[in-house]
Design a protein around this nucleic acid. Sequence first.
DNA 1: CCATAAAAGCAAAATTTTTGCGTTTGCGTA
DNA 2: TACGCAAACGCAAAAATTTTGCTTTTATGG
Lengths: 192, 192
Amino acid sequence: MIAKDPVQSRPGGRSSRVQASVHQAVRKLLERMPREELTFPLIATQAGVTPSTLYRRWGDLPQLLADVALERIRPIAEPADTGSLHGDLQAWTEQYIEEMGSPLGRTLLRDTLVATQEDQVTCACVDIIRDQLGIVLSRAGTRGESGPDVDTMLDQLVAPIVYRILYGLQPDVAFGRKLVEQLAEHLTPKQA
Amino acid sequence: MIAKDPVQSRPGGRSSRVQASVHQAVRKLLERMPREELTFPLIATQAGVTPSTLYRRWGDLPQLLADVALERIRPIAEPADTGSLHGDLQAWTEQYIEEMGSPLGRTLLRDTLVATQEDQVTCACVDIIRDQLGIVLSRAGTRGESGPDVDTMLDQLVAPIVYRILYGLQPDVAFGRKLVEQLAEHLTPKQA
DNA sequence: CCATAAAAGCAAAATTTTTGCGTTTGCGTA
DNA sequence: TACGCAAACGCAAAAATTTTGCTTTTATGG
């Protein structure tokens, strides 16, 4: 968790129950109302805690929303293994666009960008993507395939997608496919 | 201006004086304190207006900050004419990275992304970039040069830069140059 | 099991936000 | 220029929020 105090010195018991309850409250409330109507008192009531707990622990609403968003963005599983680097990239890209291109996904992306502790959260976001793409690439390595490095993928694959989502240009799956094809020109197939 | 009410039905006189005063107040305060310490009462005092004016006109702080940011992002002049498409792109990219890569520029970019009226503001941002690149491209056209279309540039040039800025990866001028070179592979030089 | 301090609860105080109403003033019309 | 209308502002009371000091609960290490 990224909280006001970077060091969570008491991670168990009631403390974690409160956090879980608060996170759940935020998610539930976000289903029924737009983000700008959320308030700490509202969330606190829904979560069954005092508002001051939220203020002391998260500081302000953007920080709490970023914290919740980060947890939702974090992938549950490793990228699918399709048998080839090209296929893995296609699969990953398609899923990423579907998840982040939705109205909810867009909101999550935005929330991570305005955390009061900006750098902590954005670094975490980049790390998540890097991890995922890193897995795909290292798997390709064991197959004898080689491709562009992670940073190139960030620039040519992730960046265009995220840019379009953030600015309302709504990338679709076909767009993702196109990006992967362009990227594929740089990669070496098996036994090259 | 992008205000709470999309239709500004009385743009002259006192109304515009108030707006100018408020904008200036925001810019001035932002020099001395971080964004999360800004409040409407503070800005109102600095601008010499009542807080309720701000609440009625802009709704909330993110919207006001986005409004100010949008005005600062809007370029004063056309892109420089260096005599070639390649040169124009280099020049534009360098300037863009310098302006938006600074701590202030990064803040401006973020502010535009969390306006309460998200879509209005982000569309305006994209339009600004499109206009600028459109000028560069049409000028190239009159020279007999041809190049990638604006959307391709958005994907391969602007997106990587903006992504890096937003996520704290700090693109430098060399990075911009690299992107332009990669883009240049797709463009046709004079008299092709 | 105890001691310690982190985290939560509670409630008063401070600050911000909303709102109703009166006043000023930009703007169209004569 | 003068006039009428409604937009935008000012003001102040009311409502909601955030902050803060203190107490109580409880996780954690010894």
